[in-house]
Design a protein around this nucleic acid. Structure first.
Lengths: 201, 201
DNA sequence: TCAAAACGTTAACAAAAGATAAGGAATTTC
DNA sequence: GAAATTCCTTATCTTTTGTTAACGTTTTGA
Protein backbone atom coordinates (compact mmCIF):
# COMPACT_ATOMS: atom_id res chain seq x y z
CA UNK A 1 0.00 0.00 0.00
CA UNK A 2 1.39 3.41 -0.95
CA UNK A 3 1.57 6.33 1.44
CA UNK A 4 -1.10 8.32 -0.32
CA UNK A 5 -3.71 5.62 0.01
CA UNK A 6 -2.73 5.12 3.63
CA UNK A 7 -3.13 8.81 4.36
CA UNK A 8 -6.47 8.83 2.58
CA UNK A 9 -7.63 6.07 4.91
CA UNK A 10 -6.59 8.13 7.88
CA UNK A 11 -8.54 11.10 6.60
CA UNK A 12 -11.62 8.95 6.15
CA UNK A 13 -11.29 7.67 9.68
CA UNK A 14 -10.78 11.15 11.10
CA UNK A 15 -13.74 12.55 9.23
CA UNK A 16 -16.03 9.95 10.70
CA UNK A 17 -15.58 11.99 13.87
CA UNK A 18 -14.74 15.48 12.67
CA UNK A 19 -15.13 16.77 9.10
CA UNK A 20 -12.20 18.66 7.63
CA UNK A 21 -11.75 21.20 4.86
CA UNK A 22 -9.04 20.38 2.32
CA UNK A 23 -6.94 23.11 3.83
CA UNK A 24 -7.26 21.62 7.31
CA UNK A 25 -6.43 18.18 6.01
CA UNK A 26 -3.34 19.48 4.30
CA UNK A 27 -2.20 20.96 7.60
CA UNK A 28 -3.02 17.81 9.56
CA UNK A 29 -1.30 15.48 7.14
CA UNK A 30 2.00 17.28 7.74
CA UNK A 31 2.02 15.79 11.22
CA UNK A 32 1.48 12.20 10.08
CA UNK A 33 3.89 9.50 9.05
CA UNK A 34 3.19 6.24 7.26
CA UNK A 35 5.15 3.29 8.58
CA UNK A 36 5.38 -0.35 7.62
CA UNK A 37 5.37 -2.82 10.50
CA UNK A 38 6.59 -6.27 9.52
CA UNK A 39 5.02 -9.33 11.08
CA UNK A 40 6.31 -9.99 14.62
CA UNK A 41 7.82 -6.51 14.91
CA UNK A 42 6.80 -4.39 17.88
CA UNK A 43 4.77 -1.23 17.78
CA UNK A 44 5.23 -0.84 21.54
CA UNK A 45 7.41 -2.70 24.01
CA UNK A 46 6.79 -3.03 27.74
CA UNK A 47 9.07 -0.77 29.74
CA UNK A 48 9.36 1.85 27.02
CA UNK A 49 7.16 4.92 26.68
CA UNK A 50 4.69 4.61 23.83
CA UNK A 51 5.43 7.75 21.90
CA UNK A 52 2.76 7.56 19.22
CA UNK A 53 -0.78 6.75 18.44
CA UNK A 54 -1.66 5.18 15.15
CA UNK A 55 -4.27 3.90 12.77
CA UNK A 56 -3.97 0.42 11.34
CA UNK A 57 -4.64 0.88 7.64
CA UNK A 58 -3.53 -2.61 6.71
CA UNK A 59 -2.89 -5.75 8.71
CA UNK A 60 -3.44 -6.39 12.40
CA UNK A 61 -1.71 -6.31 15.76
CA UNK A 62 -2.11 -7.95 19.13
CA UNK A 63 -1.62 -6.49 22.59
CA UNK A 64 -0.07 -8.70 25.21
CA UNK A 65 1.33 -8.64 28.72
CA UNK A 66 4.08 -10.85 30.05
CA UNK A 67 3.39 -12.36 33.45
CA UNK A 68 5.49 -15.10 35.04
CA UNK A 69 7.25 -15.52 31.72
CA UNK A 70 3.95 -16.13 29.91
CA UNK A 71 2.46 -14.02 27.17
CA UNK A 72 -1.13 -13.04 27.85
CA UNK A 73 -3.00 -11.54 24.93
CA UNK A 74 -5.40 -8.78 25.89
CA UNK A 75 -6.59 -7.24 22.68
CA UNK A 76 -6.33 -6.98 18.93
CA UNK A 77 -6.55 -4.12 16.48
CA UNK A 78 -7.46 -4.61 12.85
CA UNK A 79 -7.80 -2.40 9.83
CA UNK A 80 -9.46 0.92 10.51
CA UNK A 81 -8.83 0.78 14.22
CA UNK A 82 -6.62 3.01 16.29
CA UNK A 83 -3.80 1.50 18.26
CA UNK A 84 -1.68 2.70 21.11
CA UNK A 85 -0.79 1.82 24.63
CA UNK A 86 -3.11 4.59 25.75
CA UNK A 87 -2.05 4.88 29.35
CA UNK A 88 1.59 5.09 28.38
CA UNK A 89 0.91 7.53 25.58
CA UNK A 90 -1.33 9.77 27.63
CA UNK A 91 0.69 9.79 30.83
CA UNK A 92 4.18 9.51 29.32
CA UNK A 93 5.02 6.53 31.51
CA UNK A 94 6.52 3.18 30.47
CA UNK A 95 4.05 0.81 28.85
CA UNK A 96 3.00 -2.35 30.67
CA UNK A 97 2.37 -4.29 27.49
CA UNK A 98 3.68 -5.17 24.08
CA UNK A 99 1.96 -4.48 20.80
CA UNK A 100 3.14 -6.76 18.03
CA UNK A 101 2.18 -7.09 14.38
CA UNK A 102 0.28 -10.30 13.64
CA UNK A 103 0.96 -9.85 9.93
CA UNK A 104 2.74 -7.38 7.70
CA UNK A 105 0.96 -4.13 8.49
CA UNK A 106 0.85 -0.47 7.61
CA UNK A 107 0.29 2.14 10.31
CA UNK A 108 -0.39 5.85 9.98
CA UNK A 109 1.31 7.42 12.98
CA UNK A 110 0.92 10.59 14.96
CA UNK A 111 3.76 11.16 17.40
CA UNK A 112 3.19 12.72 20.79
CA UNK A 113 5.19 15.78 19.80
CA UNK A 114 3.32 16.21 16.55
CA UNK A 115 -0.01 15.80 18.29
CA UNK A 116 0.90 18.58 20.67
CA UNK A 117 1.91 20.81 17.81
CA UNK A 118 -1.26 20.01 15.90
CA UNK A 119 -3.26 20.94 18.99
CA UNK A 120 -1.50 24.29 19.18
CA UNK A 121 -1.97 24.92 15.47
CA UNK A 122 -4.50 27.73 15.17
CA UNK A 123 -6.28 26.15 12.26
CA UNK A 124 -6.49 22.65 13.72
CA UNK A 125 -6.40 22.98 17.50
CA UNK A 126 -10.11 22.82 18.17
CA UNK A 127 -10.74 19.94 15.79
CA UNK A 128 -7.83 17.93 17.18
CA UNK A 129 -9.17 18.44 20.65
CA UNK A 130 -12.58 17.26 19.52
CA UNK A 131 -11.16 14.27 17.67
CA UNK A 132 -9.25 13.38 20.82
CA UNK A 133 -12.38 13.56 22.92
CA UNK A 134 -14.47 11.52 20.51
CA UNK A 135 -11.79 8.88 20.09
CA UNK A 136 -11.35 8.56 23.84
CA UNK A 137 -15.12 8.32 24.23
CA UNK A 138 -15.33 5.66 21.55
CA UNK A 139 -12.77 3.48 23.27
CA UNK A 140 -14.29 4.23 26.66
CA UNK A 141 -17.52 2.69 25.42
CA UNK A 142 -15.69 -0.32 23.96
CA UNK A 143 -13.90 -0.92 27.23
CA UNK A 144 -17.08 -0.44 29.26
CA UNK A 145 -18.71 -3.17 27.22
CA UNK A 146 -15.73 -5.45 27.57
CA UNK A 147 -15.76 -5.07 31.35
CA UNK A 148 -19.49 -5.70 31.43
CA UNK A 149 -18.95 -8.90 29.48
CA UNK A 150 -16.40 -10.09 32.03
CA UNK A 151 -18.80 -9.52 34.88
CA UNK A 152 -22.09 -10.63 33.42
CA UNK A 153 -21.16 -13.38 30.98
CA UNK A 154 -19.58 -16.80 31.11
CA UNK A 155 -16.53 -17.49 28.94
CA UNK A 156 -18.77 -19.56 26.70
CA UNK A 157 -21.16 -16.67 26.20
CA UNK A 158 -18.29 -14.30 25.55
CA UNK A 159 -16.93 -16.64 22.91
CA UNK A 160 -20.32 -16.97 21.24
CA UNK A 161 -20.57 -13.17 21.10
CA UNK A 162 -17.09 -12.90 19.72
CA UNK A 163 -17.94 -15.33 16.94
CA UNK A 164 -20.94 -13.21 16.00
CA UNK A 165 -19.37 -9.77 16.14
CA UNK A 166 -15.80 -10.52 15.13
CA UNK A 167 -15.50 -10.74 11.37
CA UNK A 168 -13.43 -13.04 9.23
CA UNK A 169 -10.36 -11.60 10.92
CA UNK A 170 -11.06 -13.98 13.81
CA UNK A 171 -10.09 -16.92 11.69
CA UNK A 172 -6.63 -15.50 11.19
CA UNK A 173 -5.92 -15.43 14.93
CA UNK A 174 -4.43 -18.41 16.81
CA UNK A 175 -6.88 -19.95 19.27
CA UNK A 176 -4.67 -19.53 22.28
CA UNK A 177 -4.60 -15.77 21.76
CA UNK A 178 -8.38 -15.78 21.69
CA UNK A 179 -8.45 -17.91 24.83
CA UNK A 180 -6.34 -15.29 26.62
CA UNK A 181 -8.59 -12.58 25.32
CA UNK A 182 -11.56 -14.39 26.83
CA UNK A 183 -9.73 -14.82 30.12
CA UNK A 184 -9.46 -18.62 29.93
CA UNK A 185 -6.87 -21.23 29.00
CA UNK A 186 -6.47 -22.65 25.50
CA UNK A 187 -7.59 -26.04 26.79
CA UNK A 188 -10.81 -24.54 28.12
CA UNK A 189 -11.49 -22.83 24.83
CA UNK A 190 -10.97 -26.09 23.03
CA UNK A 191 -13.60 -27.71 25.27
CA UNK A 192 -16.02 -24.88 24.64
CA UNK A 193 -15.51 -25.26 20.92
CA UNK A 194 -16.27 -28.93 21.09
CA UNK A 195 -19.49 -28.27 23.03
CA UNK A 196 -20.58 -25.73 20.44
CA UNK A 197 -19.76 -28.15 17.62
CA UNK A 198 -21.89 -30.85 19.21
CA UNK A 199 -24.86 -28.52 19.66
CA UNK A 200 -24.76 -27.16 16.13
CA UNK A 201 -24.11 -30.60 14.64
CA UNK B 1 -24.07 19.88 52.40
CA UNK B 2 -25.20 23.19 50.93
CA UNK B 3 -25.23 23.93 47.22
CA UNK B 4 -22.40 26.40 47.38
CA UNK B 5 -19.98 23.93 48.92
CA UNK B 6 -21.09 21.31 46.43
CA UNK B 7 -20.44 23.64 43.51
CA UNK B 8 -17.06 24.56 44.94
CA UNK B 9 -16.16 20.88 44.95
CA UNK B 10 -17.13 20.63 41.31
CA UNK B 11 -14.95 23.58 40.47
CA UNK B 12 -12.02 22.01 42.25
CA UNK B 13 -12.52 18.79 40.35
CA UNK B 14 -12.83 20.59 37.03
CA UNK B 15 -9.73 22.65 37.65
CA UNK B 16 -7.66 19.55 38.23
CA UNK B 17 -8.04 19.12 34.48
CA UNK B 18 -8.61 22.64 33.16
CA UNK B 19 -8.03 25.88 35.09
CA UNK B 20 -10.79 28.47 34.93
CA UNK B 21 -10.99 32.21 35.43
CA UNK B 22 -13.68 33.40 37.84
CA UNK B 23 -15.63 34.66 34.88
CA UNK B 24 -15.52 31.28 33.16
CA UNK B 25 -16.53 29.52 36.33
CA UNK B 26 -19.49 31.82 36.75
CA UNK B 27 -20.60 30.94 33.24
CA UNK B 28 -20.06 27.23 33.75
CA UNK B 29 -21.88 27.10 37.06
CA UNK B 30 -25.05 28.32 35.37
CA UNK B 31 -25.26 24.96 33.64
CA UNK B 32 -24.94 22.90 36.81
CA UNK B 33 -27.52 21.67 39.29
CA UNK B 34 -27.00 20.26 42.76
CA UNK B 35 -29.19 17.29 43.56
CA UNK B 36 -29.66 15.12 46.62
CA UNK B 37 -29.89 11.38 45.98
CA UNK B 38 -31.31 9.44 48.91
CA UNK B 39 -29.99 5.99 49.69
CA UNK B 40 -31.40 3.32 47.34
CA UNK B 41 -32.70 5.89 44.89
CA UNK B 42 -31.62 5.59 41.27
CA UNK B 43 -29.37 7.92 39.36
CA UNK B 44 -29.89 5.86 36.22
CA UNK B 45 -32.26 3.01 35.44
CA UNK B 46 -31.78 0.34 32.79
CA UNK B 47 -33.92 0.97 29.76
CA UNK B 48 -33.95 4.73 30.16
CA UNK B 49 -31.54 7.13 28.54
CA UNK B 50 -29.03 8.54 30.99
CA UNK B 51 -29.49 12.23 30.45
CA UNK B 52 -26.78 13.62 32.70
CA UNK B 53 -23.28 13.25 33.92
CA UNK B 54 -22.45 14.08 37.49
CA UNK B 55 -19.87 14.43 40.19
CA UNK B 56 -20.36 12.68 43.50
CA UNK B 57 -19.57 15.36 46.08
CA UNK B 58 -20.90 13.34 48.99
CA UNK B 59 -21.81 9.69 49.44
CA UNK B 60 -21.38 6.82 47.01
CA UNK B 61 -23.20 4.86 44.32
CA UNK B 62 -23.01 1.43 42.77
CA UNK B 63 -23.48 0.38 39.18
CA UNK B 64 -25.24 -2.88 38.50
CA UNK B 65 -26.73 -4.96 35.75
CA UNK B 66 -29.65 -7.33 36.07
CA UNK B 67 -29.16 -10.71 34.43
CA UNK B 68 -31.48 -13.67 34.89
CA UNK B 69 -33.18 -11.75 37.69
CA UNK B 70 -29.89 -11.31 39.56
CA UNK B 71 -28.20 -8.03 40.34
CA UNK B 72 -24.56 -7.97 39.29
CA UNK B 73 -22.50 -5.09 40.61
CA UNK B 74 -19.95 -3.75 38.18
CA UNK B 75 -18.59 -0.60 39.70
CA UNK B 76 -18.72 2.01 42.42
CA UNK B 77 -18.25 5.76 42.48
CA UNK B 78 -17.28 7.62 45.64
CA UNK B 79 -16.70 11.23 46.56
CA UNK B 80 -14.83 13.23 43.94
CA UNK B 81 -15.56 10.80 41.17
CA UNK B 82 -17.68 11.34 38.11
CA UNK B 83 -20.64 9.13 37.48
CA UNK B 84 -22.73 8.38 34.46
CA UNK B 85 -23.77 5.53 32.28
CA UNK B 86 -21.29 6.75 29.72
CA UNK B 87 -22.42 4.77 26.74
CA UNK B 88 -26.02 5.81 27.26
CA UNK B 89 -25.09 9.42 27.87
CA UNK B 90 -22.75 9.66 24.91
CA UNK B 91 -24.85 7.77 22.39
CA UNK B 92 -28.33 8.76 23.64
CA UNK B 93 -29.41 5.14 23.83
CA UNK B 94 -31.13 3.35 26.73
CA UNK B 95 -28.80 2.40 29.56
CA UNK B 96 -28.00 -1.27 30.18
CA UNK B 97 -27.43 -0.78 33.88
CA UNK B 98 -28.71 0.80 37.04
CA UNK B 99 -26.87 3.31 39.18
CA UNK B 100 -28.14 3.41 42.74
CA UNK B 101 -27.10 5.40 45.79
CA UNK B 102 -25.40 3.28 48.42
CA UNK B 103 -25.96 6.02 51.01
CA UNK B 104 -27.51 9.47 51.11
CA UNK B 105 -25.54 11.34 48.47
CA UNK B 106 -25.15 14.72 46.82
CA UNK B 107 -24.48 14.96 43.10
CA UNK B 108 -23.53 17.97 40.99
CA UNK B 109 -25.18 17.38 37.65
CA UNK B 110 -24.63 18.51 34.11
CA UNK B 111 -27.47 17.59 31.78
CA UNK B 112 -26.85 16.59 28.20
CA UNK B 113 -28.63 19.71 26.96
CA UNK B 114 -26.66 21.99 29.23
CA UNK B 115 -23.40 20.33 28.25
CA UNK B 116 -24.16 20.98 24.62
CA UNK B 117 -24.96 24.61 25.36
CA UNK B 118 -21.81 24.99 27.42
CA UNK B 119 -19.83 23.56 24.51
CA UNK B 120 -21.35 26.13 22.19
CA UNK B 121 -20.75 28.96 24.63
CA UNK B 122 -18.01 31.11 23.13
CA UNK B 123 -16.28 31.65 26.44
CA UNK B 124 -16.36 28.02 27.56
CA UNK B 125 -16.51 25.87 24.45
CA UNK B 126 -12.85 25.07 24.11
CA UNK B 127 -12.37 24.33 27.80
CA UNK B 128 -15.43 22.12 27.95
CA UNK B 129 -14.15 20.20 24.98
CA UNK B 130 -10.82 19.77 26.68
CA UNK B 131 -12.39 18.76 29.97
CA UNK B 132 -14.44 16.20 28.09
CA UNK B 133 -11.36 14.78 26.44
CA UNK B 134 -9.33 14.60 29.63
CA UNK B 135 -12.19 13.04 31.56
CA UNK B 136 -12.76 10.44 28.87
CA UNK B 137 -9.02 9.73 28.82
CA UNK B 138 -8.93 9.38 32.58
CA UNK B 139 -11.67 6.79 32.59
CA UNK B 140 -10.20 5.11 29.53
CA UNK B 141 -7.06 4.49 31.56
CA UNK B 142 -9.06 3.23 34.54
CA UNK B 143 -10.97 0.82 32.35
CA UNK B 144 -7.83 -0.33 30.57
CA UNK B 145 -6.33 -1.25 33.93
CA UNK B 146 -9.47 -3.01 35.02
CA UNK B 147 -9.53 -5.13 31.87
CA UNK B 148 -5.85 -5.94 32.30
CA UNK B 149 -6.56 -7.12 35.82
CA UNK B 150 -9.25 -9.48 34.55
CA UNK B 151 -6.89 -11.03 32.06
CA UNK B 152 -3.64 -11.18 33.98
CA UNK B 153 -4.70 -11.65 37.60
CA UNK B 154 -6.51 -14.26 39.65
CA UNK B 155 -9.55 -13.17 41.67
CA UNK B 156 -7.41 -13.49 44.78
CA UNK B 157 -4.80 -11.12 43.38
CA UNK B 158 -7.49 -8.68 42.29
CA UNK B 159 -8.93 -8.69 45.78
CA UNK B 160 -5.52 -8.10 47.36
CA UNK B 161 -5.00 -5.13 45.05
CA UNK B 162 -8.42 -3.79 45.86
CA UNK B 163 -7.66 -3.93 49.57
CA UNK B 164 -4.49 -1.93 49.01
CA UNK B 165 -5.83 0.73 46.68
CA UNK B 166 -9.41 1.05 47.86
CA UNK B 167 -9.64 3.32 50.87
CA UNK B 168 -11.82 3.06 53.92
CA UNK B 169 -14.82 3.31 51.62
CA UNK B 170 -14.36 -0.41 50.95
CA UNK B 171 -15.48 -1.23 54.45
CA UNK B 172 -18.82 0.43 53.82
CA UNK B 173 -19.61 -1.86 50.89
CA UNK B 174 -21.36 -5.22 51.31
CA UNK B 175 -19.09 -8.15 50.47
CA UNK B 176 -21.34 -9.62 47.84
CA UNK B 177 -21.14 -6.41 45.82
CA UNK B 178 -17.38 -6.63 45.98
CA UNK B 179 -17.53 -10.25 44.92
CA UNK B 180 -19.51 -9.26 41.82
CA UNK B 181 -17.04 -6.50 41.14
CA UNK B 182 -14.24 -9.08 41.19
CA UNK B 183 -16.19 -11.37 38.91
CA UNK B 184 -16.72 -14.16 41.45
CA UNK B 185 -19.47 -15.38 43.78
CA UNK B 186 -19.87 -14.18 47.37
CA UNK B 187 -19.04 -17.68 48.57
CA UNK B 188 -15.76 -17.62 46.68
CA UNK B 189 -14.86 -14.25 48.11
CA UNK B 190 -15.53 -15.55 51.59
CA UNK B 191 -13.12 -18.40 50.99
CA UNK B 192 -10.48 -16.01 49.72
CA UNK B 193 -10.91 -13.86 52.80
CA UNK B 194 -10.41 -16.83 55.04
CA UNK B 195 -7.22 -17.80 53.23
CA UNK B 196 -5.88 -14.28 53.63
CA UNK B 197 -6.79 -14.22 57.32
CA UNK B 198 -4.91 -17.45 57.91
CA UNK B 199 -1.81 -16.22 56.17
CA UNK B 200 -1.71 -12.88 57.97
CA UNK B 201 -2.55 -14.48 61.32
C1' DT C 1 13.25 -28.82 1.40
C1' DC C 2 13.67 -30.53 5.84
C1' DA C 3 14.10 -30.13 10.75
C1' DA C 4 12.29 -27.50 14.40
C1' DA C 5 8.86 -25.02 16.46
C1' DA C 6 4.16 -23.80 17.15
C1' DC C 7 -0.85 -25.23 17.27
C1' DG C 8 -5.15 -27.41 18.48
C1' DT C 9 -7.20 -31.23 20.54
C1' DT C 10 -7.80 -34.75 23.87
C1' DA C 11 -7.16 -37.46 28.18
C1' DA C 12 -6.38 -37.97 33.14
C1' DC C 13 -5.91 -35.99 37.31
C1' DA C 14 -5.87 -32.11 40.68
C1' DA C 15 -7.51 -27.80 42.14
C1' DA C 16 -10.75 -24.31 42.24
C1' DA C 17 -15.23 -22.46 41.78
C1' DG C 18 -20.26 -22.71 41.60
C1' DA C 19 -24.76 -24.17 43.80
C1' DT C 20 -27.38 -24.91 47.66
C1' DA C 21 -28.55 -24.84 52.25
C1' DA C 22 -28.10 -23.78 57.10
C1' DG C 23 -26.98 -20.96 61.01
C1' DG C 24 -26.01 -16.85 63.46
C1' DA C 25 -25.03 -11.82 63.47
C1' DA C 26 -26.24 -7.37 61.98
C1' DT C 27 -29.35 -4.20 59.96
C1' DT C 28 -33.67 -2.58 58.52
C1' DT C 29 -38.48 -1.65 58.81
C1' DC C 30 -42.73 -0.93 60.68
C1' DG D 1 -38.54 -2.75 70.23
C1' DA D 2 -39.72 -6.87 67.78
C1' DA D 3 -40.14 -9.23 63.49
C1' DA D 4 -38.31 -9.57 59.13
C1' DT D 5 -34.80 -9.15 56.08
C1' DT D 6 -30.17 -8.93 54.68
C1' DC D 7 -25.63 -10.40 55.20
C1' DC D 8 -21.44 -13.30 55.85
C1' DT D 9 -19.59 -17.56 56.73
C1' DT D 10 -19.28 -22.46 56.57
C1' DA D 11 -20.18 -27.22 54.99
C1' DT D 12 -21.29 -30.48 51.41
C1' DC D 13 -21.69 -31.85 46.93
C1' DT D 14 -21.30 -31.09 41.92
C1' DT D 15 -19.46 -28.95 38.03
C1' DT D 16 -16.09 -26.48 35.84
C1' DT D 17 -11.56 -25.13 35.12
C1' DG D 18 -6.62 -25.57 35.36
C1' DT D 19 -2.41 -28.48 34.71
C1' DT D 20 0.34 -31.51 32.46
C1' DA D 21 1.43 -34.45 28.94
C1' DA D 22 0.83 -36.77 24.58
C1' DC D 23 -0.15 -36.90 19.66
C1' DG D 24 -0.84 -35.51 14.98
C1' DT D 25 -0.91 -31.48 12.00
C1' DT D 26 0.55 -27.16 10.32
C1' DT D 27 3.63 -23.50 9.98
C1' DT D 28 8.15 -21.48 10.19
C1' DG D 29 12.78 -20.58 9.27
C1' DA D 30 17.29 -21.87 7.99
Amino acid sequence: MDSLTALQKFRQYFERYVPLTDEEWLALSQYLTVDALKKKRFYVEAGKVCDHIGLVVKGSVRYYHVKDGEEITGYFSFEDEMLSSYKSFLTRTPAANYIQALEDSVIVNLSHKNLQQACMNELLGFKMERFGRLTAEHYLICYEERITSFITQSPEERYADLLQTGGEALYRIPQHYIANYLGITPVSLSRIRRRIMKISA
